[in-house]
Amino acid sequence: METVNIKSFRIDGKLELVKRNTLENLGLTDTQLKKVLSKLREDLGDFQDTMYAHGKYAVLICLQGMDTAGKDSLIREVFKEFNVRGVVVHSFKVPTPLEKSHDYLWRHYIALPSKGKFGIFNRTHYENVLVTKVHPQYILGENIPGIESLDDIDKEFWEKRYEQINNFEKHLSENGTLIFKFFLHLSKEEQRRRLLRRLELQQKNWKFSPSDMTERELWKDYQKCYEEAINKTSKPWAPWFVIPADSKKGARVIVADILLQTLNKLKDIAEPELDDKIKANIELYKSQLEKEE
C-alpha cells in the first residue's frame, strides 16, 4: 500500500521552508503507523537482499536536520529488518586532523557504500555548506589555498562549493549509486519540547549539550542555509525530500515509503540466475544431500 505522494515531498522547484509543514497528517493512528512501517521495512529488507545479489547498484541515504529532528531513531526503526551485511551507517562529527588534511569531501567519499549495499550518512557532506556557512571561521581550519581570512569566504566561494557537491553526486549516480537526500523539517517549538525531554529524563541527559542551546539561537540562520543548499543541490540524479518531522512515527513512514516506491521502479534489479550447469544438476545435488540423512 502506498501511503504517501512522493511529489509532495520531493523538491523539484523553488523551496520556501517557511511554507512547508512540519507535521503531516497521514490519516493513520499510531498503531496503524507502526503496522505500515513494519511492512515497509520488511519489503525494504527484501529489496536489499535482491540488490546485494544483483551487485550493480548501491544506495546512499543522506539525512540532515536540526538537533533532535529524529535522525538516529529513524535509522534504527526504518532499517532494522536489513541484513547487517547490507547496510552501513556513518555518523559524521567534527573533522579529525587526518580528515582536515584532505579536501572536505574525502571522508565522505571513503565511506560510500559498495555495490549491493545501503549506506546511510547521519549528517553528511552538506555540513560543509551548513555549519560552516553559519560559522565561516571553521573554513579557515581547512587550509584552502587562497582562503586567508573571512573576507575571502564570499558568495563565489559558496557557489563553487555547491557546484562541487553537485558534481560529486552526479559522478556517483552515473556509476551506479542511487542517492536519496532527506531533510527532517522540525519546528522550533517541537525542538524546544524535545530538548526539555532530554533534560527531564535522566536516561536522556547524555544527549544534551550546552551547544544545543547556542545553536538553537541561530535557528533562522540555519533555516536560511538549509533552504539555499536544498535549492542549489536538488537535482534529478540526487533529489532532496523535505520530510515533516514533528511526528517521528509519521516521518519514518514517509521516508520508508518514498524509498520503497522509488526503488521498486527499478525493474533491472533482480537476483542473478544460476549457471546452466548448476541448474541442470540441482536434482542431483538434492539427491546427494537427502542420502546423507
Score class of each variant (00 low, 15 high):
Leu266Phe: 07
Gln202Ala: 15
Lys277Glu: 14
Tyr138Thr: 12
Phe121Glu: 03
Asn25Thr: 10
Pro244Thr: 09
Asn281Asp: 13
Glu200Gly: 01
Phe118Asp: 04
Val253Trp: 05
Glu169Pro: 06
Asn5Ile: 13
His185Glu: 03
Ile153Tyr: 03
Glu189Ile: 09
Glu292Cys: 03
Tyr138His: 12
Lys115Tyr: 08
Ile243Val: 05
Met66Val: 14
Asp103Lys: 14
Asp212Trp: 14
Lys155Ile: 12
Leu112Tyr: 00
Leu260Gly: 02
Ala111His: 11
Gln203Val: 13
Lys93Gly: 11
Leu218Asn: 10
Leu140Ala: 09
Ala69Glu: 09
Gly86Val: 12
Leu130Ile: 15
Leu23Phe: 14
Ile120Val: 15
Ile11Arg: 02
Pro272Gln: 06
Glu200Lys: 15
Phe9Glu: 02
Cys62Lys: 01
Pro136Arg: 04
Phe82Asn: 01
Arg107Cys: 07
Ser247Trp: 10
Thr177Ser: 06
Pro113Asn: 08
Glu271Leu: 10
Ser149Met: 04
Thr96Met: 07
Glu42Ser: 11
Val78Ser: 03
Gln32Asn: 09
Pro97Asp: 12
Phe82Arg: 08
Arg107Thr: 06
Leu44Thr: 11
Tyr104Ile: 12
Lys115Glu: 00
Gly86Ile: 13
Ala251Glu: 01
Phe92Thr: 12
Trp240Ser: 04
Asp151Pro: 00
Ala256Lys: 06
Leu259Pro: 00
Arg216Met: 15
Pro113Gln: 07
Leu60Thr: 02
Val4Tyr: 00
Ser287Tyr: 11
Glu148Arg: 09
Glu215Ile: 14
Ile165Glu: 01
His135Gly: 01
Glu142Cys: 08
Ala111Thr: 06
Ala270Trp: 01
Gln223Ser: 13
Ile258His: 05
Glu163Val: 08
Phe241Asn: 04
Leu178Tyr: 01
Phe157Leu: 08
Trp158His: 07
Glu2Arg: 13
Asp275Arg: 03
Glu215Tyr: 08
Gln223Tyr: 11
Ala58Trp: 05
Ser209His: 13
Asp72Ile: 10
Ile144Gln: 06
Gln203Phe: 14
Leu26Met: 10
Glu290Trp: 10
Tyr109His: 14
Gln261Tyr: 06
Tyr104Gly: 00
Lys80Asn: 07
Lys71Pro: 02
Glu200Asn: 15
Leu105Thr: 10
Trp206Arg: 13
His171Glu: 00
Leu284Pro: 00
Ala245Ile: 02
Met213Gly: 08
Lys232Arg: 15
Val242Ile: 13
Val87Met: 13
Gln288His: 10
Glu292Trp: 04
Val255Gln: 01
Lys291Gly: 03
Leu260Cys: 10
Val89Pro: 01
Gln191Gly: 05
His171Gln: 11
Pro272Gly: 03
Asn83Ser: 07
Ala245Gln: 01
Ile230Asn: 04
Pro95Asp: 09
Tyr226Asp: 04
Leu15Pro: 04
Ala270Ile: 08
Pro145Asp: 06
Arg161Val: 05
Ile153Val: 15
Arg161Ser: 02
Gln223Asn: 14
Asn281Ser: 14
Thr177Ile: 14
Met213Ala: 15
Glu273His: 07
Leu178Arg: 02
Leu284Arg: 11
Ser209Phe: 13
Thr96Gln: 09
His102Trp: 10
Arg197Asn: 15
Lys279Gly: 00
Lys100Val: 08
Leu289Phe: 09
His135Tyr: 15
Leu23Ser: 09
Asp268Arg: 03
Gln137Thr: 12
Lys286Cys: 06
Tyr109Pro: 00
Phe182Arg: 04
Arg123His: 05
Leu63Tyr: 04
Leu28Gln: 08
Ala245Met: 06
Ser287Val: 00
Gln48Ala: 12
Leu28Val: 05
Arg20Asp: 04
